[in-house]
Simulated assay, not measured.
Amino acid sequence: MSEVDISIRSYSTDPTPKPHTVYHVQIRLPLRSYTVSKRFSDFLKLASDMEDTIGESIPFKLPRRQLFGNSVTNTELIEERRGVLEKFLRDLQKSSDQRWRLSDPWRDFIGLSATGRASQGSSLLSSSSTNASLVMPSGKNISDPVVWLDTLHEVKTLLHEARKYLSDRDMLSGTGSVNKNGVLESHSAAAEAKKCLVQSGTKVVMLDRGLKELATSVGQGELRRRGDMLNLVKKEREGLESLASTISRNTDALNSTASESPDRAALFAGNKGVLGSVASSAKRVLGPLTETSETRQLDNRGLLNLQMQKMQNQEDSLLEFSKILARQKQLGIDINDELELQNEMLRMLEDDVENSDGKLRRADRQLKKIK
């Protein structure tokens, strides 16, 4: 439901069953635009249904119902209502409380089918397996071409959020910062990323099944184009899952190294207590390798600490390199998304050109008949 623009640009009078005002709500999505017509009582019913669904009073203002007089002929009242109703819808859409715009009454009001939504809060990830096993509820295929595109856009949004959480997880790893619930922020970011990946995986399964049912409603060229788009999304999701598991393994390795360091220090301290000055003054016996200035003055303990520091620096370098690769990949994905949007616009332009060409041909034939 992101990137939805809602406005009420016009209204009209419907004479049946009795004269009443109808407001034309224009809804613009990333890949399509459409208009739904609603009367004032529909807005009141929307607010009542959402309050029943959420269980709270709606925090957005609606105009009052006029008890006396004919509101159909009062253009000032209609125009005032139009502005307040438009603000009411926009406040709902842009609210930080997502419960309102994710409710069934809201989606039904603006004409978005609930078929395209994944079941929220269901446990879809098997913790005993390395790979996520997705359990798909029955009857959740997407057979509507428009809803299919909207669901694909939702998947891309979830993957974008997962990538952002993984980036936060990468930056917060090793800082030890804790949120208000007492959980490491890096762990919280990783959990949110996994949640987005699971939800996107559910929607991908729905899209994959729905693609087979779209063969009867769209052409073969459009079907192949949507299949290519879905394959790109699948590859992106697989890459994010791989990145998430890689970051997790690196973090576990760093934590284990940090936890072992005090034990090793205690071990060397114990040896020093037992062996006394002999252990502290013991020097390494060099083999055929050439001594370096960095290690020449170090004993066994100093060499071990130096090796651990080198390994830590290598791990830090790998993490930085991983961040750079993630940013480069994000740039590539953003470019790909922009190309897909441009291709969609070009396809729409091509359809318009074909329609105009057909009209010109028909007009030319009619002119020839007149001559």
Rank of each mutant, 00 (worst) to 15 (best):
N250T: 12
S200H: 01
Q199E: 12
K87H: 11
Q120W: 06
V155I: 11
Q66C: 08
F109S: 02
R64M: 03
G69Q: 03
G287I: 05
E185N: 08
H153N: 13
N231M: 06
S123T: 10
I54P: 05
S143Y: 03
I324R: 14
Y34L: 01
D299S: 04
V198P: 10
S259P: 11
G210K: 05
Q93H: 12
H187F: 07
S356W: 11
K194P: 04
S33K: 10
M348R: 11
R90F: 02
L89M: 14
N181S: 06
V22S: 08
A363E: 10
L240I: 12
T35I: 14
N74C: 06
K180Q: 12
Q330N: 13
E185S: 07
T202A: 07
R327E: 02
R107D: 10
V183G: 00
L349E: 10
E344L: 09
V183W: 06
Q314W: 08
L172E: 12
W100N: 00
K140Q: 13
L77W: 14
Q199H: 09
P105K: 00
D364N: 12
L31H: 13
D299F: 02
S2R: 11
D42C: 03
F88A: 00
V84D: 02
S173A: 13
E51M: 02
E3V: 03
L124D: 13
K203E: 07
T295D: 01
R327Y: 01
S173T: 15
S200K: 00
S248L: 10
A190F: 08
E340Q: 10
L214K: 04
M50C: 07
K235Y: 02
L46R: 02
D316L: 14
G83F: 10
S188I: 01
R284F: 04
T35K: 02
E354P: 13
A162M: 07
R28S: 13
N255I: 15
Y165I: 00
R32I: 04
K203V: 02
T21V: 15
D299R: 03
S37V: 09
S123N: 12
Q220R: 14
P19R: 01
K164Q: 08
N305Q: 14
L243H: 11
G273T: 11
L207E: 02
E260R: 15
S217R: 10
P145T: 00
E236M: 01
T75D: 08
K87A: 04
V353L: 07
L254C: 15
S293G: 07
S133E: 11
P15R: 05
I142M: 01
M1T: 14
N313S: 12
E291Y: 03
I247R: 13
R101L: 01
H153K: 13
L341I: 08
A253G: 11
R365G: 01
W100H: 02
S138M: 12
L367D: 07
P30E: 00
E192D: 03
I110L: 06
Q220A: 13
M171E: 10
L172F: 15
F68A: 08
G221K: 11
V278P: 13
S41H: 06
G227D: 06
L232D: 09
E238M: 05
T16W: 10
L254S: 15
K368N: 06
